[in-house]
Design a protein around this nucleic acid. Structure first.
Length: 583
RNA sequence: GGGGCUGUAGCUCAGCUGGUUAGAGUGCCGGUCUGUCACACCGGAGGUCGCGGGUUCGAGCCCCGUCAGCCCCGCCA
């Protein structure tokens, strides 16, 4: 049907008779001459219809071609007349003089424009999703998904070459009561029983290690029934890997190899190894477990400087055992009152009670922070002329993330220049456990199979909250790329951890028995990591939302607008699944 | 579960302090046009102002509710 793709034609093709197929991107009808920009995935080429080379009925048909119709064209590649080349198109030196044209895919007027006029904003997100087949025609979307394809292939190549086997694991699995909410699938065969879609292939990959596969990877689809974000979809893809007889160092090396390769694939050379930062330090210095290290601007602890000279509010906070965390912003005095209000609002969205600020001008410090902090704390901030001091009081669990968020807002408002373009970092030594905010119960930070740090194994029994884990996160420019750990392979330690989590042995057996049984059957030490592939694709494509790098994404409210999912099903189908819907 | 922003022509938007017949660009339809490339020019059609209720002599505009999209908090082993 076709000899070339539209976007592939070049001056070297001049003289060739070609057959093309594509979409009418735009038509320019000059009466006696008609130009059609014909588009396919490789780009645009100008098809020219003129009485000198197009038969009369072809000329006539050219005048009726409508945007987004699919046409087949036969013609000859000709150089454009002198001065008529279009330097903005790779095909701009040539045009195809059409001798035949046939509309094979008539098109209604598109509901959203594919060929936009210059500077025209995109259609509303809702319409882009509703008419996804049109939105995906845009070259930007094609480029994103083509990049995604290359990243997938490159991942496979890199991991295969490192001895990892790609092994698929089930999509119909066992519901897990902890972690994210499961998507549940009713069993037709077993009334009242359910499968769940996997939140991750965690247990399977550990069993593959038990089985001696040694190195596993999968581009794993995962499902979590939780509320959405710009960087979170309810179904997503992980680069999931696991290896035996490894230390964290081994996993770091493999991961760095993959990430360096993926960044190279996207044309962004980066270097390994990545620096490392302990979780504690990341929180204390940046107020985040995914710090953006392209920027300095580190947090300070003013707690010891809060005293006699400070305001009642901060003294009371410190008296309750809370801390006063602060940020000195060079040049920050340039921020307006409105900016400071915005920063305060940002702190409050992170549940901080407020934000204390002080500016230093030529006549000394001004602002509510002067009194609140007192001379000693103010001095410790070390503000120079034109600087801004910001402080948040509260328990570290609130004050640090709140100030971390303020830090990012300050960077944005002041448009601070990054010190580098690509800031990878490993965050390590996460706590093994944390307290649930609502219940105060001890819960795992990563998952219940995460091994404690070798130095802290004894703490699991004596002081679990202080125990660090062999759990690590890969972070890039303030974005969490992935999370992994060395797993527990010692049944005694596993039992101890479950006990700490308040899980009864019988309960544990019921939920995880098949994994624990496996671990007791001769389990090699093993560990791994799961990288958020969609996020990586998004970062490398340079977009704002995962919807830019997913062909058919869900909305923020977990709906598929193009097809109208989720939806009810006929009563007979419900009955076959032994389900009734409660009103 | 909570908060914020948005919703006016197919699309992107404007619409003053509540006041007569709701506008623009683009797309669409018709016409002229042989070197355009956002073609140009002339003419035309096109509106449940998201939906429901309320206030008012009068509502696109004010109030209440609701739906949808987006962003954030919680949540996301």
């Amino acid at each position: 049907m076709r000899t070339h793709r539209c976007g592939a034609l070049r001056a070297s093709d001049v003289g060739r008779e070609v057959s093309l197929g594509g979409w009418v991107h735009r038509r320019r009808d000059l009466g006696g001459l008609v130009f059609v920009d014909l588009r396919d995935r490789e780009g645009l080429v100008q098809v020219a219809f003129g009485p000198g080379w197009s038969p009369a009925e072809v000329m006539e048909r050219a005048g009726t071609l409508i945007g987004e119709a699919v046409i087949l064209v036969k013609g000859v590649v000709e150089p454009r007349p002198a001065g008529q080349a279009n330097p903005e198109l790779p095909t701009g030196e040539v045009e195809v003089h059409a001798t035949e044209v046939r509309v094979v895919g008539p098109a209604a007027t598109p509901a959203i424009p594919v060929a936009r006029v210059r500077g025209e904003p995109l259609a509303a997100e809702e319409l882009r999703l509703r008419y996804r087949y049109l939105d995906l025609r845009r070259p930007e979307m094609y480029r994103n998904l083509e990049l995604r394809h290359r990243l997938l292939q490159r991942t496979r190549r890199e991991l295969s070459e490192r001895g990892f086997l790609e092994i698929e694991t089930p999509m119909l699995t066992k519901p897990t009561p902890e972690g994210a909410r499961d998507f549940v699938v009713p069993s037709r065969v077993y009334p009242g029983q359910f499968y769940a879609l996997p939140q991750s292939p965690q247990i399977y990959k550990q069993l593959l290690m038990v089985s001696g596969f040694d190195r596993y990877f999968q581009l794993a689809r995962c499902f979590r029934d939780e509320d959405q974000r710009a960087d979170r979809q309810l179904e997503f893809t992980q680069i999931d890997l696991e290896a035996s007889f490894v230390t964290p160092e081994d996993i770091y090396a493999v991961t760095e190899g993959v990430l360096v390769a993926l960044w190279a694939e996207a044309g962004a050379p980066v270097e390994a190894p990545f620096p490392r930062l302990a979780y504690r330090d990341a929180m204390a210095r940046y107020g985040s477990d995914k710090p953006d290290l392209r920027f300095g601007l580190e947090l300070m602890d003013l707690t010891p400087r809060i005293g006699e000279g400070s305001g009642e509010f901060l003294r009371a906070a410190v008296g309750r055992g809370e801390r006063v965390r602060a940020l000195a912003v060079p040049g920050g005095a340039a921020l307006s009152r409105k900016d400071l209000d915005a920063l305060t609002a940002a702190a409050k969205t992170m549940r901080a009670s407020g934000l204390v600020w002080a500016k230093r001008g030529p006549d000394g410090p001004t602002g509510p922070g002067v009194k609140a902090l007192g001379a000693a704390a103010l001095e410790a901030l070390g503000l120079g002329d034109g600087d801004l001091g910001l402080a948040v009081a509260g328990p570290d669990a609130i004050a640090l993330p709140a100030l971390g968020r303020v830090r990012l807002e300050v960077i944005r408002l002041l448009e601070l220049p990054p010190s580098c373009r690509h800031a990878f970092v490993w965050i390590e030594q996460f706590p093994l456990f944390e307290r649930e905010a609502e219940t105060g119960n001890l819960t795992f930070m990563h998952h219940p199979f995460t091994a404690p740090h070798p130095d802290d194994a004894a703490l699991v029994a004596t002081d679990p909250e202080r125990a660090r884990a062999q759990h690590y996160d890969a972070v890039y420019n303030g974005v969490e790329l992935g999370s992994g750990s060395i797993r527990i392979t010692d049944p005694a330690m596993q039992a101890q951890v479950f006990e700490r989590l308040g899980m009864a042995p019988a309960d544990v057996e019921h939920r995880f028995g098949w994994l624990l049984e496996g671990l007791r059957s001769g389990a090699p030490p093993h560990g791994g990591i799961a990288l958020g592939f969609d996020r990586i694709a998004l970062l490398l494509a340079g977009g704002e939302s995962l919807r830019e790098v997913i062909a058919f994404p869900k909305t923020a409210a977990a709906r598929a607008l193009f097809e109208g999912a989720p939806t009810g099903i006929p009563a007979a189908d419900l009955a076959a699944l032994h389900l009734t819907v409660a009103s």
